[in-house]
Design a protein around this nucleic acid. Structure first.
Lengths: 130, 130
DNA sequence: CCTTGACCTGGAGCGCGCTCCAACTCCTAC
DNA sequence: GTAGGAGTTGGAGCGCGCTCCAGGTCAAGG
């Protein structure tokens, strides 16, 4: 698989893929005779998981830590587990926070008239309640 | 209330508060005789709500749009409502995505041995499953 | 052959959302 | 009256995570 294929299948741009390799998030890819990167399917699996970490807001430095542990070998399993457990806790907290915010949003939305956007103006001063 | 009080009570730094005023996210504060900003409690309410919008990932440009509508007056209620409804949908989608990611995380975590981080190494090659 | 286009590298640039700075003014306490 | 601390302004700088660019190499199609 060449980089353009991996890009298409992973959803990351080729620039991002090269960037990820440069910073060590993805192991250095094998090269063909002409120096071009060659990937196998396992990279795709790894990228998909990285994307989950990213989607859940894990900062780059932690993804990098995780990637380095992974590169070190199977014996880093427990450390990686700890990292993921800590991250899971944060994601759970984030979900709880978002759900909390959702009730605030719902309340706020209910406080506004439902009509279409170009209704007659009742007053013309800034609202005091946000 | 002076800016340092508002900062303490809102959780935003004084720099951020001035920045928010500069870009129009917060209406220009009244000034005392010496040119210092003076706030009333309503600003705090507004900031708390802004913080919810921020916490739920609403981008600055949308918060700005919302702030401008608010500044325009009560008759923008329906528009604001639309904005918030759209945002709420995004937050809901985000929560769903996070919950989805959580199950992936859980599965991944279960796949790692539970022992403490300095366990004996079973192999020493990079893991194929991320 | 020669063109085309995908790929390579190192490094610069960017958008976001602040954060910090210099240089100044003003109020308060001693 | 003077030192210190909190406030003011405009503008520069920063960390993150890419994104883009110049200038080159290489392989395949016509």
């Amino acid at each position: 698989m060449k980089i353009s294929d991996l890009a298409r299948r992973s959803g990351f741009s080729t620039d991002t893929l090269r960037y990820y390799e440069k910073i060590g998030l993805v192991p250095r890819a094998a090269r063909d005779a002409g120096g071009r990167r060659v990937y196998d399917a396992s990279t795709l699996t790894w990228l998909a998981f990285l994307d989950r970490l990213r989607a859940t807001g894990m900062p780059m430095r932690d993804r990098l830590t995780y990637a380095r542990l992974r590169a070190k070998g199977d014996h880093t399993g427990p450390e990686r587990r700890q990292l993921l457990e800590a991250h899971r806790d944060e994601v759970r907290a984030r979900v709880a926070q978002l759900q909390d915010c959702l009730t605030v949003l719902d309340t706020k939305i209910d406080s506004y008239p439902k009509g279409k956007a170009n209704d007659p103006a009742p007053t013309d001063r800034p609202t005091d309640t946000p």
